[in-house]
Amino acid sequence: MNSQSFTDRLSQDEPLVLAGGYLFEVERRGYLTAGEFVPKVALEHPEVLEQVARDFLRAGSDIALAFTYNGHREKMRIIGEEHLLEPLNREAMRIAKRVAAEQREELGRDIFVAGNISNSNIFDPDDPATADQVRAMYREMVGWAKEEGADLILAETMYFFEEAKIALEEIKAAGLPAIVNVAVFATGELRDGVSPGEAAKRLAEAGADVVGTNCFQGPHTIRPIVKDIVDAVGGHKVCAMPGTFRTTDEHTTFFNLPDPGNTATLPHDRTFPDSLEAQNSNRYETAEFGEYAHSLGVKVIGLCCGGSVIHHRELSERLGKPSYLSKYSPDMSKHFMYGSDSSLPDVATSFRGQA
């Protein structure tokens, strides 16, 4: 059991780390089909999902996130497996809860368990029927998460304000704390024309415990969005979770990132979503974002698509929160080429400048 509630923890000065990016991490390990991106790993290879959750917590995450991103009725309909919807959601929650309990004991600190809902891909502001469908989808997922013991719900990658509002309403109706993150395309607005700052302000006023942004932008190009949100909400708790890709002023999101060094013929002439390896930001520039977000007073800081264990570990350390895995952080003192330790043989110094 945690020593305090999630909402109590939010009132403390120290930021919380939230490791996301389960979808890309599981696909990178080979256990998820790119394209459909449905998290069936919870049912087909629970041991893989357990290890990802364990690694993220050992890297410093304060929250065990149930991997139910895209685990909603619409995605299950597309792949013809709606009968797996409830089992998938419940098993993902059970895995998160089980690993959180294990790591609380191992690490000796509070770890909160979050249910997860995401963009529906069917919401249409011009079709009221889609709002009802989205509400029903979120209601059942939040209900299952609550029954399985969630401490809070993360609603993420919400690129319509009205869809984010529906998600928040269903979370609050269930009596659970809510983190609601909007996602912003290259236009700088949500798809229904609302600015990220205005969306966050309205969501905070509607009762979200934490508001923020995730995904689409990398650690550099997401900064103006985070600043806009922080300025708009006036001291309300904020979450920031970039993807870990080197987006630029020209390509502000990772959807159209080029790969000028590529010599292979890509299957679909773009790097997103399955050819982004060469565009990944390194651990140090990613962790610098964490410092920036913390300087703005952001309360929940994490990483989304592309974020690996080493990214999260470095992020935690930069925030003054060394993790269990910090004992494996880089130490070049004994490196054969760069090391300065007296135990190294003299011949090691001869490599310097020749590599």
Rank of each mutant, 00 (worst) to 15 (best):
I222W: 09
T221P: 05
K201N: 11
I229N: 09
T221K: 14
K201M: 09
V233K: 03
K237Y: 12
L203H: 04
Q217C: 12
C215W: 13
A204R: 13
G212E: 12
K201E: 15
H236W: 02
E205M: 06
F216N: 09
V238N: 04
L203S: 05
P224K: 12
K227C: 00
V238G: 01
E205Q: 14
C215Q: 13
V211C: 01
I222T: 03
G243E: 13
M241G: 01
K237H: 13
K227A: 09
V211M: 02
V238D: 06
R223M: 04
G234Y: 04
G243K: 07
V210D: 02
G207A: 13
A208D: 06
Q217W: 15
V230L: 07
T213V: 15
A208Q: 07
V226C: 07
G235M: 03
D231V: 08
C239K: 06
R202N: 14
G235L: 04
P224T: 02
G235V: 01
A206Q: 10
P224F: 03
K227Y: 00
G212V: 04
K227S: 05
A204G: 08
I229D: 11
G234C: 02
V233G: 03
R202P: 06
L203Y: 05
A240L: 06
G207W: 15
C239M: 13
D209Q: 03
R202W: 14
D228R: 11
N214S: 08
V211L: 02
D231A: 14
V211P: 00
R246T: 07
Q217I: 05
V238R: 10
I225T: 15
V238K: 06
K227T: 03
Q217P: 03
T244W: 02
D231L: 08
A200C: 06
C239F: 10
G234M: 03
P219S: 14
M241E: 10
T244H: 03
T213M: 10
C239L: 08
I229A: 08
A204Q: 11
A240V: 10
N214L: 05
I225H: 13
G234W: 04
A208T: 02
V210S: 01
H220F: 07
P242M: 12
T221I: 10
K237V: 01
F245R: 09
G212R: 12
T213S: 15
A204T: 07
G212D: 08
I222P: 00
F245T: 03
R202K: 15
T244K: 02
D228F: 02
M241K: 14
A208K: 09
N214V: 00
A206F: 09
Q217G: 08
F216K: 09
K237W: 10
I222Q: 12
T213W: 12
R246I: 01
D231S: 13
V238E: 07
A204D: 11
C239G: 06
E205A: 15
K201D: 11
T213K: 13
A200Y: 13
F216R: 12
G243R: 05
A208G: 02
A200F: 07
P224V: 01
D209C: 00
G235A: 04
T244D: 03
V210P: 01
G234V: 01
V226L: 12
V238S: 06
G243F: 01
P219L: 14
D228K: 09
G234F: 02
N214E: 08
R246P: 00
V230N: 11
G243D: 14
T213Y: 12
E205G: 07
G207L: 11
H220K: 15
C239H: 09
P242D: 12
D209L: 00
P224L: 03
A206N: 08
P224Q: 07
F216W: 11
R202S: 10
